[in-house]
Amino acid sequence: MKYLQQAVIIAAITFAAEIIKYFVPLPVPASIYGLILLFVLLKTGLLKLGQIEDVGGLLLELMPLLLVPASVSFLTVLDTIQGMLLPVLIMGFIGTTVVMIVTGSVSQWIIRRSGKEKGHE
């Protein structure tokens, strides 16, 4: 029954997140509120990792599968996207490359700089 108990806890956090979303007038999905809520619960020790880890791990492992129905919905936008094909392709290939290199270079520069500082101490 430990799986049922874990599922109930995760469902309750999801429920709480959706209630927060209902009352907070911000363009933030319920999943973000839930993510922060779960992190706070774990960090404060109100919830132990073992109380959700099995079902939570299963959900994380299944995540790509859960995205299949939404991805298949591309069929319904083939007409809509035709006019946007070029921007979508440019953002997908060039945009992704630029973001990857910017993030990698900036963080690497900081890590190496702080590494050097420690070396001098």
Partner: peptide, 24 residues
């Protein structure tokens, strides 16, 4: 979508919430 697809999509929100686990 109606015949089963939405069951998977329904689980997306709790799954995303569980990204808090690796973060923790």
């Amino acid at each position: 979508y109606e015949n089963g697809g939405k069951i998977l999509e329904f689980l997306l929100t709790p799954a995303t919430i569980c990204l808090a686990i690796p973060l923790y």
